[in-house]
């Protein structure tokens, strides 16, 4: 017999993500899903942001990696609550992994929760976690054509952080082109240009974050 059904395969994930979202909202926690290719600077940006902001806002971190606790150890040294998720091969975090991780966090003291996704420019865009916004990091050494090659992630993100601008003299990346390509795909993107190495541009990012958190209380 023929059975007609319409079942979204990611429906279960979306439902759990919605549960996470409600929980975050109830606790007043702003949640950012950080996505990039491996090595763009997600963990470094978190380390910098924590040092600069932890006296002003409560920060928590969920670290997603295929394996190892290395990033969680880096964050732990900065003195904030952190939970490591090892996906055991999976190329993205999903809502269930996040819902298990938040059981280990005391959200009442966390104003901003950063979720560092697995380094990958494709799959994380498909899986909602219950976040308030998706934040993409691209380092300039990756080239100005990346928005055109991985458009969905740029389309889904609210924020694009262009990192490692200290390397501009050594790369052929055309940063104006990169901005243009990104805005073509998503005209609403908030773009920040930073260097975690020299600190350039970080203050603007911090102030923007503080304003975002302030707006929720």
């Amino acid at each position: 017999m023929k059975i007609g059904i319409v079942k979204d395969i990611l429906e279960a994930n979306d439902m759990i993500a919605e549960g996470n979202r409600r929980l975050f909202k109830g606790k007043g926690t702003l949640v950012m899903n950080l996505m990039s290719s491996p090595g763009a600077g997600k963990t470094t940006l978190l380390e910098k942001s924590i040092s600069a902001l932890k006296d002003r806002v409560g920060i928590g971190v969920i670290e997603g990696d295929i394996q190892t606790e290395l990033d969680a150890e880096r964050i732990h040294k900065k003195g904030v609550e952190v939970v490591q998720i090892n996906t055991g091969g999976a190329c993205h975090l999903d809502a269930t992994m996040v819902s298990q991780a938040i059981e280990k966090l005391d959200l009442t003291n966390i104003d901003i929760l950063f979720i560092e996704n697995v380094g990958n420019l494709v799959c994380p865009a498909e899986f909602r976690l219950g976040e308030d916004m998706k934040v993409m990091i691209l380092s300039i050494a990756e080239g100005e054509d990346k928005p055109l090659k991985y458009p969905l992630m740029f389309h889904e993100s609210q924020v694009l952080i262009i990192n490692k601008i200290d390397l501009l003299p050594y790369c052929d990346c055309d940063i104006m082109r990169l901005r243009e390509n990104s805005l073509k795909i998503n005209p609403n993107l908030n773009i920040f240009e930073i260097s975690c190495k020299t600190g350039r541009g970080l203050d603007v990012w911090y102030e923007w974050l503080i304003k975002k958190v302030g707006g929720r209380h």
Binding site: M1, K2, G4, I5, V6, I9, E126
Partner: peptide, 11 residues
Amino acid sequence: RELQVVEMEAY
């Protein structure tokens, strides 16, 4: 962006 099961044949 669809990822759906829409039909099955079974007995």
